[in-house]
């Protein structure tokens, strides 16, 4: 067993620096790497590019990095829940690259799986395809999209073991598995870190080969964006 465990979040993010590109898992605030984000805020590194489906809310998730003006560029599919984001974008302080959600996921997965690029029909004929190579296959038009290149991937899983194997929970899975092994270094934070052998190999979602560092996360807030319920009876 190759042990991927690091002692804490500080050790997990070792090597991050100004100007780097990070992938961050999560959909809205669901399944975001809360501990890694807090640590990046604490370190105060600047001019970072974030590849993440969303940009958090004003006071949580990637919104915390935006507040401190640490982000130079955001690559996302949907950024609708964040006033500070909108302000920085409209004032030109923040560069934004909006990407169709399925394309964003696949650009991560392509990096993970060793594809330099792929063709997708998403965005053909729209401003997303401007300046990109297009090609016809079987009578339909497609857009060539390159894989992402990133320095670190920060992902959050439910359970993990010392070997870096990961299991996700519910829809907190989202982009996290696609980002594992898609950057130079993948850092996984987990709610429950277990000894190797504790997880059933049949039930692993992401094998440890895609993870360089794993640590036991702390104090998960798991904030709910839209609490919707029905009444009993």
């Amino acid at each position: 067993m190759i042990n991927k465990t690091v002692a804490n979040v500080a050790e997990a993010v070792e090597g991050v620096a100004d100007g780097m590109t990070f992938m961050l898992g999560g959909f809205g605030l669901c399944g975001i790497p809360e501990n890694a984000i807090s640590e990046l805020v604490r370190l105060g590194i600047k001019d970072i590019t974030c590849i993440s489906n969303n940009a958090g809310v004003d006071d949580f998730g990637l919104g915390l990095l935006l507040q401190e003006r640490q982000i130079k560029k955001m690559i996302s599919s949907y950024v609708g829940e964040n006033d500070e984001f909108e302000r920085q974008m409209l004032s030109g302080e923040l560069e934004v690259e909006l990407t169709p959600q399925g394309t964003l996921a696949e650009k991560c997965r392509a990096a993970q799986a060793g594809f330099p690029a792929f063709y997708t029909p998403a965005g053909y004929g729209t401003e997303v395809a401007e300046g990109k190579e297009t090609r016809e296959f079987n009578g339909k038009m497609y857009v060539l999209e390159p894989a992402y290149e990133a320095d670190f991937s920060f992902v959050k899983a439910w359970k993990g073991d010392e070997a870096g194997n990961l299991i996700f929970k519910g829809t907190a899975r989202n982009f996290n598995p696609c980002m594992c092994g898609a950057a130079q270094i993948t850092v996984a934070e987990v709610e429950e870190l277990l000894p190797a052998g504790s997880l059933d190999p049949n039930e692993i979602h992401i094998p440890g080969i895609f993870v360089q560092r794993i640590f036991q996360g702390e104090n998960y807030e798991k904030r709910i964006e839209q609490r919707t319920v029905r009444q009993k009876g």
């Binding site: 399944g31 996700f168 829809t171 899975r173 989202n174 696609c178 919707t228």
Partner: peptide, 23 residues
């Protein structure tokens, strides 16, 4: 908090449901 829909609303699942990644 770990089970939401695309509108970020909390939801439930029905028998036969499955979860999967974004790709």
């Amino acid at each position: 908090a770990d089970i939401i829909n695309a509108g970020k609303q909390t939801i439930t699942t029905l028998p036969g449901a499955s979860f999967f990644d974004s790709a």
